[in-house]
């Protein structure tokens, strides 16, 4: 079952000579419970595509359906509601709120859904239950990213968007974070859209979408996705 359908979507920045086609007539489908990698070099349009799919930016042309709902027609308030209800976000630089404790940072996500996951359960799943009273500056990068994952997951999103989520981590921590993501995807039946320029990480995905210069250049259905431990980091 398709969770997201992208139909002929284009997005352009700038004007005249400085005009850049960030997305050029992209069409694709993302299935529910899938692990999707958006792979491409810098300027390929993968982050723009992520922003457009997640309702952060509007496409100039084309349509995007989320579970048969055309979100391109949504007004701003509806888009906020859409993100609140269905999406989670993980960033490369974690972006925790520095003067809130780990628990409070996770509660930022929990507040958005009355029927959220249990905070103790999710912190236990991510092995950060002992860090709840600490502030972000007292954590390592890997720990911070796990807190960010907890913040994103606790509100029970349908789809999790990860923008270079392991880009700031070393191999050990990076693999650990990916391992948690893989595990949680299975446990909670999540759909994950993972933006990366790292080919090894992309091999963890079942569906790999390759972009270049704003165009969709290839889509690979990977029948044998690797585990986090199996991927090569170099």
């Amino acid at each position: 079952m398709d969770l997201i359908t992208v139909n002929d979507v284009s997005k352009t920045y700038g004007e005249k000579e400085s005009q850049v086609h960030a997305l050029n007539r992209i069409t694709l489908q993302i299935k529910k419970n899938d692990f999707v990698a958006l792979l491409g070099p810098s300027g390929s349009g993968k982050s723009t595509l992520l922003n457009v799919i997640s309702g952060l930016e509007r496409a100039d042309a084309g349509e995007i359906y989320f579970a048969k709902e055309n979100i391109t027609r949504y007004k701003d308030k509806q888009l906020v509601q859409f993100r609140r209800q269905y999406t989670g976000y993980i960033f490369q630089q974690y972006h925790l709120i520095p003067n809130l404790t780990v628990q409070e940072n996770i509660e930022i996500g929990k507040y958005l859904n009355a029927d959220s996951l249990d905070l103790d359960e999710i912190t236990k799943e991510l092995n950060i239950q002992h860090l709840k009273k600490r502030f972000p500056y007292e954590l390592s990068g890997g720990q911070q990213q796990r807190v960010a994952i907890a913040r994103a997951l606790i509100k029970k999103p349908e789809i999790l968007f990860c923008d270079e989520a392991t880009g700031a981590l070393d191999e050990e921590n990076g693999k650990q974070v990916l391992s948690y993501l893989q595990h949680l995807q299975r446990k909670y039946g999540l759909t994950i859209v993972f933006v990366t320029h790292h080919v090894g990480i992309a091999k963890m995905a079942r569906h790999i979408i390759k972009l270049n210069s704003g165009r969709l250049v290839d889509q690979i259905m990977n029948d044998q996705p690797l585990t986090a431990e199996e991927i090569s980091w170099g």
Binding site: P41, S42, S44, S47, L56, F91, E164, G167, H197, N212
Partner: peptide, 17 residues
Amino acid sequence: SYAVPIAAPKPPKRVDM
């Protein structure tokens, strides 16, 4: 602008698969 303050740093240009 919401995207700019939290945008990920740009990765390298080349991708091989």
